[in-house]
Computed example of a mutant assay.
Amino acid sequence: MSSASGGTPPAVRVRKHLMVPGQPRPQNREPMSIGGVQRWVLSTLAATTILHLAVGLIFAAAYSERLDAKIGLLVISAAFGVLAMVAALVIHRRQPLSPWLLIGLVPTAAGAWIVL
């Protein structure tokens, strides 16, 4: 029997995000070196540890009653956030002055919106 339109059925599109049993996905030919993995682990630990300190300063600012203390703690929090990004960049042997430093200001910006 033919289809209602009289033509051949449309071709099925292969979805690229699905696994095809006979066609494995191409893999990286060169795995990451142990030094590269260590750099990623160290930079992640350093950045998250320093950012936790920055967030702690934001909480301290939230519980402070004086406006000048709140502003001072938020400024120190911003400095620690930028320092966290500098540490990660230096560990990866990149230039410390980079647009990535703006990521360090995100927790302080969110905290300032909540605190002030």
Rank of each mutant, 00 (worst) to 15 (best):
Y63P: 15
A79R: 04
F80V: 12
L57Q: 04
T49K: 00
A54W: 07
H52I: 14
L45I: 10
I58T: 10
I71M: 13
S77D: 00
A62S: 08
A54E: 09
A61W: 03
E65G: 01
A46R: 04
A61K: 01
A61F: 01
A78L: 12
I71A: 11
L57S: 02
V55C: 10
A60C: 07
T49E: 01
H52N: 13
A46M: 07
R66F: 10
I58S: 11
L51W: 14
V75E: 02
L73N: 05
G72D: 02
K70T: 07
A60I: 05
A69Y: 08
L53I: 12
V82M: 09
A46T: 05
G72R: 03
D68N: 09
G56A: 14
L51M: 11
Y63G: 15
A60L: 11
L53F: 11
A78H: 15
G81E: 06
I58K: 08
A46G: 05
A46H: 04
A46W: 04
A47E: 07
A47I: 08
A46N: 03
A61C: 05
D68S: 07
Y63F: 15
S77R: 03
A61S: 09
T49Q: 02
Y63R: 13
K70P: 09
H52L: 14
L51K: 07
R66Q: 11
A78D: 14
K70Y: 11
H52W: 15
I50F: 03
L45P: 09
L73G: 05
L51G: 06
L73Q: 04
A69F: 10
L45W: 10
L73M: 08
A79I: 10
A61Y: 04
G72T: 01
A47N: 10
E65P: 01
R66G: 13
A79T: 11
Y63D: 15
S77E: 00
I76Q: 03
F59R: 15
T49V: 00
V75N: 02
A62W: 11
L67V: 02
V82P: 08
E65D: 01
H52V: 15
V82R: 07
G81Q: 03
I76M: 03
I71H: 09
A54H: 06
I76E: 01
V55K: 07
L67K: 03
G56E: 15
L67S: 05
L51R: 07
L73A: 06
T49D: 00
E65H: 02
A60H: 06
S64L: 03
D68E: 10
A60T: 05
F59V: 14
V75A: 04
A69T: 13
A47W: 05
K70Q: 14
F59G: 12
G56H: 11
G72S: 02
A79Y: 08
L73D: 04
I50S: 06
H52S: 15
Y63K: 13
E65F: 00
I71F: 12
A78V: 14
D68M: 05
I50G: 07
L45H: 09
I76G: 00
Y63M: 14
A79H: 06
T49N: 00
